[in-house]
Design a protein around this nucleic acid. Structure first.
Lengths: 368, 368
DNA sequence: ACTCAAATCCAAAGCGCTTTGGATAATTTA
DNA sequence: TAAATTATCCAAAGCGCTTTGGATTTGAGT
């Protein structure tokens, strides 16, 4: 445990400089690492600063510099009024990056019609230095708007259209699902269901394209009844799976866009007495949400590429077959990209497309 | 969609007051609802303010007033480096309350040894006006510390010891699990496993007490091998359940402290070919995490007491037997309590103990 | 020793808001 | 109508920091 010591009185810059017999200018410069101050006085100042427990006031320095050292996240409050676990894992990564660099993380919940006002609010009085754009849609309007008001931003995901005019980080959703679909086709499956997210979302749209591409490559017709598109959660996965199992010519394999709906799919299979991997094949896109990870989240590598041990793996054996990419690592990286952009304005946009790992678990097999 | 209109130049107070031919004082007072300004000039000012798109600078007003209009959440970064879904649902509720009242939500991730420093940082230069204390432990040191530095706070949960010296909101964990245990005993179960959270956490400690009380009331010995205590996630639920099923005299019923581990429990049952409700009984404490809720989170009522339709209910039929209370509603209420405390300093602490609903699902039944 | 440049340091002017302590104009009261 | 309120409004002083434009000191160069 740490020193929950007696709270010292905290001093401000004026008091501190008086104690030191220096001007505020010098003290400020010493602490902020300016070259105009000699090394020995810098040391003296640093010592005194933490002896007197000096901390600069964020509002004062923000007012003076015009920089807030805060990054904003506008979380879309859908009708479902929820921050889903994907989002929170993303935040975990991002906040970690911010903490390293001395930034704070500000969250504002917004209904779709409030977003513009919030961004404008953010920029006009610089409450934040930049924002992360979450959940880009197929027709995305925020990007252009943010460019027009000049608020630095990084998109988690991408919009369609012009992709090099702004910074983004995305998973290669299309090829990920294509890979997964191909795997199932190679196993012998011909009727494969896609339990997708809302296809107004860009990521879901791209995943569908990957799915369709794989089928078409193998001369399999795309059957619309095998595809669902909704906000991803457990009950949706359950209901969609049940419904498809009840069809006259039911699918032999299911692909889920999220582990959340995959959980519902597993429940449905269970309910029907179907053993995954044997009677039915289940596969999912896996964001490596921490609450499903047995590794304890100690996924060391930066992009977390190698240490993946599979969704819901017990010990070292992966359970579900999946294509996976850590959304937490994505959050960290997006945070870094945004901070870079803030501190080096005018640099060209950075775009990163992350590959996914195909992990073979025990929930897939040849069709029954 | 809203007006993603052309970004107007934004003016500051000085410019606005010049346009109006009034002093900054009057304009400021008009906008902040002070009585010293006549109603007609107030109108005029309001009109001009949003015609010129005026928004006060948060840093400036924060500097002048000493109030940040920000509420801090220090999220403990365990070794598992995760923001779990419980936490994010809580945030969803809280941020909603803040948005109503014009507060912002600031998140700082902290390792245990950094917390003191962060709180001190928060208060010394008022970066935030108050904080929410998450995950109180059995021996909680933060409360005393926060009292000593005079930073307003509300605890989500409680510590032991003196309970009336600070504000908190807690679920009645003890009676909740007692209720659930009693229900299982009444069904005929004698060997009931408790897959608990980390018992250094206050809530988990209290839940265990409830469990033990119910057993002892019925003259059943508490068997320590039936109890697990760990950070709650899916793989833990799976592993603990598997391990207990492998015991010589295995339990016939399981109580999970979280739906996350309950999911793992269901997977284990499935893996063993045991049908919940038939061959084995599974029950859980349910925080009504939104991603497991079929109701779409439209749980209208303030405390969300009545509209509970059960964890993972499909349609209107609850699936798992549970005791439940909405953590999102808790977040909202905690936020309100904290804002009240901030705007009315000196009022006595407020403590709320929320009851839980017992919801009978299909995963419990008489012992096989 | 003398000049000039480099190294240090400082006083003071903001940043954009709130708020104190008056001033002025409008209204009432005597 | 003069005096006393009361209703409006304002100038200016902070809040705590950064930063500009100089002043002063030091050290090197000749």
């Amino acid at each position: 445990m740490v020193t929950w010591a007696v709270p010292e009185k905290t001093v401000n810059l004026k008091q501190l400089s008086k104690h030191l017999g220096l001007s505020q200018t010098t003290v400020s410069r010493a602490l902020n690492g300016f070259p105009e101050v000699s090394e020995k006085t810098r040391q003296k100042v640093r010592l005194a600063a933490d002896k007197f427990n000096y901390r600069p006031s964020p509002s004062a320095s923000s007012l003076a510099t015009g920089k807030a050292r805060i990054i904003g996240h506008v979380v879309p409050v859908s009708e479902h009024r929820m921050i889903n676990p994907h989002f929170s894992d993303f935040l975990a990564g991002a906040s970690d990056a911010y903490a390293q660099a001395g930034y704070d993380l500000l969250i504002r919940a917004a209904q779709p019609d409030e977003e513009a006002g919030i961004y404008r609010d953010f920029v006009s009085r610089n409450r934040v230095d930049g924002v992360v754009v979450h959940g880009p849609r197929v027709n995305e309007t925020r990007i252009e708007f943010l460019q027009s008001i000049g608020l630095p931003f990084v998109v988690h995901g991408r919009a369609g259209g012009e992709e090099h005019s702004y910074s983004w980080l995305d998973v290669d959703n299309r090829s990920a699902i294509e890979k997964l679909t191909n795997y199932l086709i190679d196993l012998g499956h011909r009727r494969i269901a896609l339990i997708n997210g809302l296809e107004t979302m860009n990521f879901a749209h791209r995943r569908r394209l990957g799915y369709e591409a794989a089928l078409q490559d193998h001369g399999i017709d795309v059957d619309p009844v095998l595809i669902s598109s909704r906000d991803m959660n457990e009950p949706y996965g359950y209901e969609a799976t049940m419904a498809k199992l009840d069809m006259p010519n039911p699918p032999t394999a299911f692909i889920y866009s999220s582990v959340l709906s995959a959980l519902g799919g597993m429940r449905a299979a269970n309910m029907r007495g179907l053993l995954p991997g044997q009677d039915i094949s289940l596969a999912t896109f896996d964001d490596r949400l921490s609450f499903l990870q047995s590794g304890g989240g100690e996924n060391g590598g930066k992009k977390g590429g190698d240490s993946a041990n599979g969704v819901m793996g017990a010990g070292s054996t992966p359970y579900m077959t999946s294509v996976s990419s850590s959304i937490q690592d994505a959050g960290r990286r997006v945070g870094e990209m945004l901070m870079d952009q803030i501190s080096n304005p005018g640099t060209p946009p950075v775009c990163e497309l992350w590959k996914t790992d195909l992990i073979i678990g025990t929930t897939t097999g040849k069709p029954a």
